[in-house]
């Protein structure tokens, strides 16, 4: 585990350094390469511009307006989200807290375009994304978002390295992937080293501990150089100290690489590590 100390050592104590890193902008360039730009919509939609904010690109990276979502249980409609308004600023570490079952995961899935809201709009970099065609949303998820889940969600048939490489395999066709295989592998290994899993490359997920699986999931989320990391209770299934380690990794990513992170949790102490906390109560943002 000695290889992970480099990350863990820069825990909350580095918070003060964050602003100067942000100012440099070099780390942002590392993350936002030309190939991971948001896809242009097929038809320019004038309505997608939010009239409220004159220059959304500089302000909010992600913005949800008046989101409604309800599930149907037979004839009964179960409203979960009833008008969520929230925004995620570029480079911030936002934490969403709320009671179990209040709809945090639902909201995160909507933000990650895994599901579509019943009502309301979601804008990413000033562009409306909730009504994009499926192929565009797939591209967006692959190029711009990284996702981490409570149950790690690694593919059991693939080993750690292959799991980390999976998003790149999805992005590239067989030939272009094989042509750049070596480069991709280097990158994946680098990331695994960074999260402290350099010695577990060939292990299957079931041969890893919970914390190790979550680190692998983080490496997988980062391998595509995303602009936004969506984490759904990344520590929910881990003991306190392992959870702390995971949060340190996220904290560090936010500090050093200026990665925007949205983290869902119901653990107050975990949530306090974030820059900002929003509370989800009765399907609305309370604060």
């Amino acid at each position: 585990m000695s290889s992970s100390t480099g990350v863990r050592g820069q825990g909350p104590g580095t918070r003060g350094r964050r602003s100067e890193v942000k100012g440099q902008g070099t780390e942002v360039d590392y993350l936002v390469t030309s190939e991971s730009r948001i896809p242009e919509p097929r038809t320019p939609n004038p309505e997608s511009q939010i009239p409220k904010s004159p220059n959304p690109r500089t302000q909010d990276q992600l913005r949800a307006t008046n989101i409604h979502k309800s599930y149907h249980k037979g004839p009964v409609e179960v409203p979960v989200l009833r008008g969520v308004d929230m925004e995620v600023r570029r480079g911030e570490f936002l934490s969403i807290v709320g009671q179990s079952g209040c709809g945090k995961s639902t909201l995160l899935h909507l933000l990650g375009t895994l599901d579509a809201p019943d009502r309301g709009e979601i804008h990413y970099d000033g562009r409306r994304i909730d009504n994009l065609p499926a192929a565009e949303r797939d591209r967006l998820r692959n190029h711009q978002f990284g996702m981490i889940f409570q149950f790690y969600h690694l593919l059991p048939e693939l080993n750690t390295l292959e799991n980390v490489l999976a998003p790149l395999m999805i992005r590239h066709g067989t030939w272009s992937y094989l042509a750049r295989r070596r480069q991709f592998k280097c990158k994946a290994k680098e990331l695994l080293e960074m999260v402290g899993l350099g010695h577990r490359l060939k292990h299957r997920p079931r041969e890893l501990s919970g914390g190790e699986m979550q680190r692998a999931a983080i490496a997988r989320a980062l391998v595509t150089k995303p602009c936004l990391l969506l984490a759904d209770e990344p520590t929910g299934n881990l003991d306190t100290s392992t959870g702390e380690e995971i949060i340190h990794i996220l904290r560090d990513l936010n500090d050093r690489r200026n990665l925007t992170i949205v983290m869902v949790t119901h653990d107050r102490s975990i949530a306090r590590q974030a820059d900002r906390i929003v509370r989800l109560v009765e399907g609305r943002i309370a604060e």
Binding site: A135, L140, R141, H143, F149, H153, L154, L155, A166, I170
Partner: peptide, 11 residues
Amino acid sequence: DIGILKSLGAS
């Protein structure tokens, strides 16, 4: 696994 693949951007 299918959900995971889709969350990673698989069509």
